[in-house]
Amino acid sequence: MQVFLERLFDGISNGAIYAALALALVMVFRGTGTINFAQGEMALFTTYIAWGLTTKNIPVVLCLLIATIAGFTLGAVTERVLVRPIEKRSLLATLIVLLGLFLALNSLDGILWGNQNHSMPSLFPNGVNSFISVDGARLYWANLGVWLLVALLVGAMFQLFNRTRLGLHMRATASNRESAALAGIPTGRILLLGWGISAAIGAVAGVLFTPLNPDALGLGEMFPLLIYASAAALFGGLDSPGGAVIAGLLIGVAESMLSGYVSAIGGQLQEAIAFVAIVMVLLIRPQGLFGSKEVERV
C-alpha cells in the first residue's frame, strides 16, 4: 500500500506537469492549427534562465516570475516573427520552422549553459525530511506544491477561457479566424497572446518539474516531456483543454505504475510506450477521448 501510494504521488506530480504542457500545446493548436514542437525546448530555455538566476542567489519565486515573463515574450515573438509570416504558405512549412526552432533553442542552450547537468533548487521545502506521512507513505512538500500550483494554473486558464471576454475572443478566433476578424476581433493580437500564454505555462512547468529529480536540468530534459505532453494532448483530443489535463494526469500515473511494477519497463522503454500510445490513438480514435470529430488534420 505504502509503495503504491508513493508511486501514485510521483505519478500525479509528473502527470500534473504533462497536463500543464499538454494544455499549452492545445492552446497553440486551437489557435494556429499546429503542434508546437518547440514547446518543450522553449520551456527548457526559460528553465535555464531561472536556474542561472538561482545561482546568483536570487529567490526561486522571483526566478519563476522572470522565467514566466521570458517565456511569454519568447512565445509571442515566435508567433509574430516565425509563425505568422509562414503559416499563410502552408501548415507543413510551419511545422518545419518549429522543428528548426526546437534544434536552434537546444543548441543555444548548449552554447549558453554548457552540456553538464545541474540540479535546480525547488520553490518548496525539498529536504529529505520535508514530507508528511499518508498511511505510512511519504508525500513530499515538493509534490504537494507542484499539485497546488498546477491546479491553480489550470483553474486560472479555465476561468480565462470560459469566463472572460478575452477568453471568448480566443475561443472564437480558434473556432473560425476569419469570422472572428469580421466580428471585430484583432485576431493577430489574440494569436500572439495565445502563444505567449502557452509558452509562459511551459516556463512554469519547467521550473516546477526540474527540481523533482536531482541533476535533472540538461539538454535532453524536455524531449521526453514533450513526447508525454503530446501524447496527452492527442489522447485528450488536441482541441480539448479539459481532455488534455485529464489525459496528462492519467499518463503520469500510468507511467509511474508501469515502470514501478513491471520490472522490464524502465528508462528508454517508457518513451517507446508513449510513442506506441500515440500511434494507437491515431489509429483507433483520431479525435482523442474528448476532442471533436473535425480535428484530424495533424
Binding site: R165, L168, H169, R171, A172, S175, N176, E178, S179, A180, L182, A183, G184, I185, S292
Partner: peptide, 26 residues
C-alpha cells in the same frame, strides 16, 4: 461596417449566446 459572409461563418463550437457576444467584440 459589418459583413455577414457567404456561408455564414458560424462559430460552430460556441453557443448561440457566445456567438452574439463575439459580435459585440468592438
Amino acid at each position: 461596417v459589418s459583413l455577414v459572409p457567404q456561408g455564414r461563418g458560424t462559430f460552430a463550437k460556441l453557443s448561440v449566446d457566445d456567438n452574439l457576444h463575439v459580435g459585440a467584440a468592438k
